[in-house]
């Protein structure tokens, strides 16, 4: 596992967190504890209804845990999200894609949204935006209208937007739903490239951590070093290799056809 040099301050620290939706008796999340360090590439695996989206919303500060604590880059989640220290790209893009703006304008939105129109963004901010566009390959269509992009290009643009805020951790929620095998391969290469570039350029204690949330082990095995299996609580695995259908069935208490690869080995060797 890269860049855990000494004892870097964790980018995500969840301690005994729980969450129960109002009006429900059973908790959605219970006694969740996990630590994600700078430079980690972690998969968060779980079937539908396992609490993945709830845990992500707690990490992003959209909701507060009913029990326990969550710290993001040493801050409360909401404060970290506002400062761009944690950024996410959601499965479903809710943006108004008919908007008459370019990809570059979209990527610059989070950084410059408080700047008056008569002020130009700083050189540092421009450099960060150019870097994020180059990292994701979105620089090739940076001046195209956002509405003219394909699904894969839009995903790159939105990942670039998240990276442009210089986050400590990037969360990608179900990034491979509806993506064909070639698209999945491109995605895995892009994640490798982003991870390698950000690890090489930054000091190890501030290397970018990436969390990939998925219900599909194949998506996680191709891109992550460590797997957190979520089923109301967390079961941690050092790699996807040991997650055979039998192990997954035990964790998730039911058939895992939708999660595990068809062949026990194939998920780990992309």
């Amino acid at each position: 596992m890269p860049t855990t040099n000494g004892q870097p301050a964790p980018v995500i620290e969840v301690v005994e967190a729980g969450f129960t939706y109002r009006g429900r008796s059973a908790p959605t999340l219970e006694r969740i504890s996990c630590t994600i360090n700078p430079g980690d590439r972690v998969g968060l695996l779980g079937p539908n209804g396992s609490g993945k989206s709830t845990l992500i919303s707690l990490m992003l500060g959209a909701q507060s845990p009913s029990a326990g604590t969550i710290r993001i880059a040493g801050m409360a989640p909401r404060a970290a999200a506002k400062k761009g220290r944690i950024a996410s790209v959601t499965q479903k893009c809710l943006a108004e894609l008919n908007f008459p703006i370019s990809v570059r304008q979209v990527v610059s939105m989070p950084q410059n949204n408080r700047l008056p129109l008569w002020k130009r963004p700083s050189a540092e901010s421009q450099a960060r935006i150019d870097h994020a566009l180059a990292l994701t390959g979105a620089d090739q269509f940076a001046d195209d209208p956002i509405g003219a992009l394909s699904g894969g290009q839009l995903q790159r643009a939105l990942i670039a937007r998240a990276l442009a805020t210089d986050p400590a951790v990037l969360i990608l929620d179900e990034p491979l739903v509806g993506v064909d095998p070639i698209g999945q391969e491109h995605f895995a290469k892009m994640i490798d490239h982003i991870h390698a570039a950000e690890s090489a350029e930054r000091d190890p204690a501030s290397a970018l951590a990436i969390v990939i949330v998925s219900h599909d082990l194949r998506a996680i095995a191709a891109t992550c070093d460590r797997v957190l299996c979520l089923s109301r609580t967390i079961h941690e695995h050092a790699s996807a290799e040991g997650l055979t259908p039998e192990v997954l069935a035990e964790i998730f208490h039911h058939d895992v056809a939708g999660i595990a690869p068809h062949h026990p080995d194939c998920g780990c060797h992309h």
Partner: peptide, 13 residues
């Protein structure tokens, strides 16, 4: 106007 949910998450007013 472009993306209300993300704008809120990124701390836009």
């Amino acid at each position: 106007a472009f993306d209300e949910r993300s704008a809120c998450a990124f701390g836009a007013p």
